[in-house]
Write a protein that binds this DNA or RNA. Structure first.
Lengths: 214, 214
DNA sequence: ACCTGAACACCGTTCAAGT
DNA sequence: ACCTGAACACCGTTCAAGT
């Protein structure tokens, strides 16, 4: 019984049965022991999920496939592949939003994002920008992943559509004016647009805190 | 027993004991009935949380306090107050990330954001921008709120700091070069900067999908 | 239609006792 | 130090039976 073994078992259950089934009791069963034994190696379930996420990130290919393109395009490719990988496991993305990742897999990703970002913006903006980009990518993965993998997502969207249709120009003029364009765009179109917004925004927005404070 | 009554009881427990205690069983106890009775009025816990969130949003003041300032500044004020309100209940923010809100409280907020956004950008960008802004605000509230209210947050930050200190210029040159500036900034400084990044980005990034597709 | 008791099928975590 | 059985204190949801 080792932490590596526990995390490996957790990833196996994750892939075969989903995150809901990755419980201390289920893992203990898988490893032929009692749930209490696991607490020698992981602090709690949040801790376990952090290890799982980092293991997943280690498997992410961060090497550049299109070195001839500019830093923005390369970042969009990298971040999109991160979103795609994480969206497979939206529950882990949600955990990462709440527990700050700090494992080698995450540091590796941060380093790569910083390397690309530094080509286009100054160091102070890069320092805050990397966090903004990865925070956005993570929450996008949680959102997209949940919608893609949940049977309730359709009913959910129906409710939003019904709410939009019920809007009259008198009650909500701006919503009524835009109408269904509020919901337009294939999932990935919006994700890519959002990354461009962030990159252009970072390049065009100076940090507002006192430079001497660093 | 009505849905309004159930939601009101839920909000009372939320405020006095936190979201973890807002369970079907706890609510049933509060309302002197069995948990099964609640399922006549709410589909499940996700549904209940959606009602709770919308009730909370109804209490959000979206009227403008600084009409003399430009649309960007007004949006930053509005979005910051949304983040502040939601960060009080990070669990609800997390739910909103996964279940699309569609109640009157949310529509009210969307209308207000659209009204301000329309002063600065074209309708197509406003349509996608409002979702991007509120998605970011929601996930920021979940993140900030959890850190602010969780006793484990400190240990979490210590781990990140230790990981950063352990970085050498050989392994992660860009991380090492930025050092502790990666973690700089008071919570709110970064939140405000992020909103400026988004607003500048939206203003400076055309939508990439086919305009005829609307 | 609305309401309920009881059950089904689970959880995370702790702790005293063992090896 | 590591491991465990058993317990503590809970969960969401369903369903047959009642009113």
């Amino acid at each position: 019984l080792t932490r590596e073994g526990i995390v490996a078992a957790a990833l196996a259950v994750l892939r075969s049965e989903g995150l809901e089934r990755v419980t201390m009791r289920r893992l203990a069963q898988e490893l032929d022991t009692g749930p209490a034994s696991l607490y020698v190696y992981v602090r709690n379930t949040a801790d376990l999920r952090a290890y799982m996420l980092d293991e997943l990130l280690m498997g992410l290919d961060v090497t550049d496939t299109t070195p001839e393109r500019d830093w923005r395009a390369q970042l969009v490719v990298l971040l999109t592949s991160y979103v795609r990988a994480l969206a497979e496991h939206p529950g882990l993305a949600l955990s990462a939003l709440v527990t700050r990742p700090s494992g080698p897999g995450y540091l590796n990703l941060v380093e790569r994002v910083l390397a690309l970002l530094s080509q286009g913006v100054d160091a102070r903006r890069a320092a805050w920008g990397v966090d903004l980009l990865l925070h956005h990518a993570t929450s996008t993965a949680a959102e997209q992943g949940t919608w893609a993998h949940s049977p309730e997502a359709d009913a959910d969207e129906d409710r939003v559509l019904a709410a939009l249709r019920a809007v009259t120009p008198e009650t909500y003029p701006h919503i009524a004016a835009l109408g269904m364009d509020l919901m337009s765009g294939e999932g990935l179109d919006r994700v890519v647009w959002a990354f461009h917004v962030l990159l252009n925004g970072i390049a065009g927005t100076e940090r507002t805190d006192d430079p001497a404070a660093d």
